[in-house]
Design a protein around this nucleic acid. Structure first.
Length: 615
RNA sequence: GGUUCCGUAGCUCAGCUGGAUAGAGCAACUGACUUCUAAUCAGUAGGUCGCAGGUUCGAAUCCUGCCGGGAUCACCA
């Protein structure tokens, strides 16, 4: 990475040394952008030096400024306001900076750092289709993966598919009993939606059954013998639902029987399970493809749910875990501010944590990753805290590289998404809707008429997805976010399409250009403030990537892209490119535009957003 | 109740390794297309940065306490 401000920092360093005999490290010199109400480009805050130099801030600033403007060509002038030393950089510096950036074809691409990292995201259940919550997860995971990759990591995208358990058995049972052999193909339904329908079918039938049961004598007896006397009848039965499912329900009994058969490897159940999960995977793959994401390795819970018992045994042997009289196994994390946590049931079966210990180990063995990123919503913060602490307690070599990329849940303007009440935004519906909105808007504008229908559709797709993706990724992951469907398809202002538009404008200029040469920029004298603003952004791009990679946070890249596009739009409005005053000006602006396009395309790619050539 | 995350303009969000008079977008109002794509630009209006202390030359940013909201604290996943 090139530090384009190194020259100025070195000037400050030697000024401190030569004027005051004070030595500092280059890395400790902090230059900030000069606020726009003052004159200058970069500012050195001198307050921190007053103590050690035993002098007044204004005086220090004046002396340093005078020395630097004398010794550094790139500084054209300076001014001092209180303890702030403002530098204005020369046109020659900016021209040179642009040439340097222009020379880098693969800007934002860092050399390999030899580290391997896995990013786990999406991780769906196979009983229902993906929804908006998955979309935030998938976009975050994908973008983080892209960012780590460009920052020099060898990245493996992975998901663990929760393909077993009572939920899928419910879908299977409902299909078996009520579908009369219908299939996704025969009904023209996307596979995951098809299976989801039977999950809902089960829930509906079960609810009906439960309501009917509540009128029975058995229910009456249960109600009369209830523990909590303060609950009235409806409240009681609301809280009793799970117990009813386990103790009384005929459907519940059948679903549980199916789960037992599945675990016993019953060929019929297994084959139904494989068939229905196959439908779901077809559906998921379609959604992943629509979103432009893919995975390198897949883990299935049906393969991994028994893992982890070795680790439990080792933990017992090393006295890191303990066994209670009833046979259950626990870990005591109270010395680390956490709690006691169960790791194995008294009947010897696994819990969630058991599995996660096992899959972490397995993934490390399989992939040899020094880092593992888990993209999982913040409702599981505690779970991961415990998981990581256990790994540390066991002194597993990869424990320090585990990271939970936690993100806030997505709310609708009407409140929380509730799948039970049908208040969910379906992923596929949403994708269709955003693209449809773009198409509608485009038709009103009446542009792109010279293109074929196929070409237009492709552009609508890119724009629609950019609106959706940008809307979600611009928000800091740890914040809970409100998803307003109307705002998510906005195409004006701080949006994906706004950024695409800046890129498209550049492509349009380039198309009109016959010979694309950038000579003679050295003669450019009348550099425009909007051009300097753009360059100030361009020189920080690689720093932004490192920051995003370090914090596993794509939102900074999203906001950076917006800032750059905004500066470009202003520049585009203020100056002529093809009809520039001089040849040098034209060359400079073309080169600048070319590099803005280069960076925008790259940064949006990190967000999983494609750029259209026209719009 | 314990732990933890969040609280910035009417709304959605930046800024948080401390720096000057806290920024965008949306919504409202005003202007700018015979021009390289107006999916754009410019302007007006909008704020006790949840509250109160503390540290500091300087706090939206760091510390403490409170208030409000979310999550979580199962032999569920």
């Amino acid at each position: 990475m090139v530090d384009h401000l190194l020259g100025l920092k070195e000037g400050v360093k030697s000024a401190l040394l030569e004027v005051y005999g004070h030595e500092v490290q280059i890395e400790d010199i902090v230059l900030q952008l000069t606020k726009k109400e003052f004159n200058g480009d970069y500012t050195l805050v001198v307050f921190p030096y007053t103590k050690v130099l035993r002098s007044k801030p204004e005086l220090i600033a004046e002396k340093l400024g005078a020395h630097i403007v004398e010794s550094l060509d790139i500084v054209s002038s300076f001014n001092v306001i209180k303890g702030f030393l403002n530098f204005e950089l020369s046109t020659a510096y900016w021209i040179d900076t642009l040439s340097q950036i222009n020379a880098i074809d693969d800007i934002g691409r860092f050399p390999s750092n030899g580290q391997k990292v896995s990013v786990e995201f999406s991780s769906p259940n196979t009983n229902k289709p993906l929804h908006l919550g998955h979309i935030r997860n998938i976009l975050l995971g994908w973008s983080t993966s892209q960012i780590l990759q460009t920052a020099g990591y060898d990245v493996v995208n992975t998901q663990i598919i929760n393909d077993r358990g009572i939920a899928i058995c419910k879908s299977m049972l409902a299909w078996d009993k009520f579908a009369a052999g219908a299939e996704p193909q025969s009904t023209g339904t996307k596979g995951d939606h098809f299976v989801g329908q039977y999950y809902i079918e089960f829930e509906n039938r079960f609810r009906q059954e439960y309501l009917e049961w509540q009128e029975s004598k058995a229910a009456d007896m249960v109600f009369k013998s209830r523990d909590k006397k303060d609950l009235d009848k409806p409240e009681f039965f609301k809280s009793y639902k799970n117990e009813y499912f386990n103790e009384h329900s005929a459907l519940g009994r059948e679903a549980k029987a199916m789960l037992l058969k599945w675990e016993a490897n019953d060929p019929e159940v297994r084959s139904l399970w494989a068939k229905m999960n196959g439908w779901v995977y077809d559906g998921f793959n379609q959604t992943y493809s629509d979103l432009g994401v893919s995975f390198d390795t897949l883990y299935y819970e049906s393969d991994t749910y028994l893992l982890g018992k070795d680790i439990i045994r080792q933990g017992l042997d090393s006295d890191n875990f303990y066994r209670k009289e009833d046979g259950s196994v626990w870990v005591d994390l109270t010395d680390r501010g956490l709690d006691n946590k169960i790791l194995l049931r008294s009947d010897g079966t696994s819990v969630y944590m058991t599995q996660d210990l096992g899959t972490a180990q397995k993934r490390y063995d399989d992939l040899e990753t020094s880092k593992m990123i888990y993209v999982v919503a913040d409702e599981q913060d505690y779970h991961f805290q415990v998981l990581f602490e256990i790994m540390k307690k066991l002194e597993t070599p990869f424990a320090s590289g585990m990271y939970h990329l936690s993100y806030g849940m997505v709310d609708l303007p009407s409140g929380r998404m509730k799948s039970r009440e049908g208040r969910v935004v379906d992923a596929d519906d949403l994708i269709v809707e955003v693209i449809g909105e773009v198409e509608k808007a485009a038709k009103e504008r009446g542009e792109l008429t010279e293109l074929t229908e196929t070409e237009r559709k492709e552009i609508y797709r890119k724009i629609g997805l950019s609106a959706l993706k940008f809307f979600i990724l611009k928000v800091n992951p740890q914040k809970r976010m409100t998803f307003n469907p109307e705002e998510s398809v906005d195409m004006q202002g701080q949006t994906g399409p706004y950024i695409q538009n800046a890129y498209v404008r550049i492509q349009s200029v380039k198309r009109r250009l016959n010979d694309q040469t950038f000579d003679e920029i050295a003669d450019y004298a009348e550099i425009d403030p909007t051009e300097i603003e753009i360059l100030k952004s361009l020189i920080t791009y690689e720093e932004e990537i490192l920051k995003a990679a370090e914090h596993y946070d794509p939102s900074g890249i999203a906001n950076y892209s917006y800032e750059l596009a905004k500066k470009y739009h202003k520049f585009y409005h203020d100056v002529r490119i093809l009809k520039a005053e001089t040849k040098a000006a034209k060359s400079f602006r073309l080169m600048l535009s070319h590099n803005v396009a280069k960076v925008l395309k790259h940064s949006m790619h990190l967000l999983g957003i494609e750029m259209p050539e026209r719009m």
